[in-house]
């Protein structure tokens, strides 16, 4: 059996009287692509926000390998190896593709003021090193993007921006990658292309665990190993796509049958 990577136990997020996420339990294994699905407002993004420290969970725990990361701030969670993308793109518009990708790799940058102002040659080496890294990761998703690294983000198409956002999350070699509806705003053809690249990444980095929020069931069926289904902040099913699509609860809540 594969190693357990992320262990979420009884994760609960409350906003005042509203319980957005209630007692969620699930595990993510190394090399696994886990689908997180559920109707709008079922708590998928809240779950990501709670894992990445944007929201403080009211109860429960999140353990990465052996490290308890519950309630840590976002920076510490990033440093322990969890990165994410956002449902509504959160790239730094106004900066270049290169800058946006390097923001994903801040753990690898020397940010001392004196280093940056005085050791310009060493800085140049770091920039060139990052340049190489950025080019290599962009090549996986779209070789054309390599020629656009000095261009502003605003010149890219939607799918390329999504790709840049995923590259930004991958460049620091995280253990867990959280993808919040990356196919939003893409055509089905673009989504297919994107998911192919994602499967490629999964094959190349067997220790990486990915959680994917996705609405399109055919995509979930094609790429995920297992799924967790949420409704009203509670887990209503877990298992392979085949298993959950047979579950009556899931059909009622999500697929609109009764």
């Amino acid at each position: 059996m594969e190693n357990k990577l992320l262990d979420v136990t009884n994760l609960t997020v409350e906003f005042g009287g509203l319980t957005a996420l209630s007692g969620l339990d699930f595990q993510l294994r190394e090399g696994e692509l886990l689908g997180l699905i559920g109707p709008n407002g079922s708590g998928k993004t809240t779950c990501f926000n709670a894992i990445t420290g944007i929201y403080k969970p009211s109860k429960g725990s999140v353990v990465l390998l052996t490290k308890d990361i519950t309630g840590l701030n976002s920076q510490k969670i990033y440093k322990s190896g969890i990165t994410r993308t956002f449902q509504r793109l959160r790239l730094a518009v106004g900066l270049s593709v290169f800058d946006n990708l390097v923001i994903g790799d801040t753990v690898d940058l020397n940010t001392s003021v004196l280093f940056n102002l005085l050791k310009r040659k060493a800085l140049r080496k770091q920039v060139d090193y990052q340049l190489n890294k950025v080019k290599n990761i962009l090549k996986i998703f779209n070789p054309d993007l390599v020629n656009a690294i000095y261009e502003p983000i605003s010149k890219l198409t939607m799918i390329d921006r999504r790709r840049v956002e995923v590259c930004r999350a991958l460049i620091s070699r995280p253990r867990v990658l959280l993808l919040d509806e990356p196919s939003a705003g893409m055509t089905s053809e673009e989504t297919r292309e994107f998911m192919d690249d994602l499967l490629e990444i999964k094959k190349k980095t067997p220790s990486l665990g990915i959680i994917l929020i996705e609405h399109e069931m055919s995509v979930i069926q094609r790429v995920t190993d297992r799924c967790v289904v949420l409704n009203y902040g509670k887990k209503i099913a877990e298992g392979t796509y085949k298993a959950i699509s047979c579950s009556r609860d899931v059909r009622v809540a999500y697929l609109g049958e009764d």
Binding site: G53, I54, Y78, K79, R90, A92, G94, I103, S172
Partner: peptide, 10 residues
């Protein structure tokens, strides 16, 4: 540009 995204990247 974006405090939330920045803090998610350390």
């Amino acid at each position: 540009i974006d405090e939330v995204a920045s803090s998610c990247f350390g």
